[in-house]
Amino acid sequence: MEPAFVENLKVLCDAIASEGELYIPKKVNSHYVFKLYTSSDDEPVLNEIRVCTPVKEFLFPIRELAAVFPNEYETQDVKPFAVFGLKDCDLRSIEILDKVFSEDDFKDPFYISHREKMFIISSDCTEPAKSCFCCLFSGKTWPDKGFDLNVSPVECGFLIEVGSDKGKKILNKNKQLFKKATPQLIQQRDENRKKADEILTSQNAEYRLNNPAQKVVESSDGSQLFDIEAAGCVECQACTRVCPTCHCFYLHDTELKNYYGKMKMWDSCMRMSYAAVAGGENPRKILSDRIKHRLMHKFSYYMQRYGIDMCVGCGRCIDAESGTMDIRKLLKQLNGELTK
């Protein structure tokens, strides 16, 4: 299906918001966050890079009720909702989470109920951040799958590409709002994409690995680099919270009004007692072991299980870092030790 053209985003947002809640990016200082769209909003801003918070928040809330006792608790009806402004890295992070929560032998009904109701409007990245490194992990500045609709900014408006039947349905339902994209506009979109990809590739040239990341981390036994990284880490755990693919959680039993509840809450493998057992043993009580485990999970264990890396190169961990760690640099240094 040929892309459609629309002059402003408000028209598109109004059409989507008529079907359910719509979350759009809003700039706060130098970052973007998601906010609920209302029809009284001004023309939405198209985010040039990914929103600060990871998309997993929509699918796997920070804290949700997973069971009650003594009564049974099943998933609640999730109303259809739409998220606007997701980038290629976000869509690939959803693919990674899908494999864990909805495609493996045990399925998480809470994740699935959110996932099934989510309508995705992605958009091209026009100005990659200095921390973006998706190009090192098969990503690019524009998505070609995983969306319902994709928005590309062009002169005087936006091109809308359809990626699913759900997306096609919305466009067909609101035909009068859209024009046909001209070949010139499509060419302009392709040039914009190429330009953004070039910026990304060029800023990451120094971090490119000459070995697969899996081999790099699997060959890192005994490396002092993890101790060096640990010295610069303040254990804030922000890297795991903002990471769109990290999905550790813990189950917390609590007493609610007149029943007991089991809450499912985000957790972090960087937390010292994360893997500790009641008897006191803890396989990763040393910080450098936890840093290494996180890398092994992302580039080795997940790869062995699902055949892809568990990192999309969004760079959020680098932006959120309170210490000194830069995952690109660490991989590059480990790669250096391997090729010595």
Binding site: V100, F106, H247, C248, F249, Y250, D267, C269, H293, Y301
Partner: peptide, 11 residues
């Protein structure tokens, strides 16, 4: 059920 990550032992 192999989701939360706490008990990981290698892969």
């Amino acid at each position: 059920i192999g989701l939360c990550g706490h008990c990981m032992l290698g892969k």
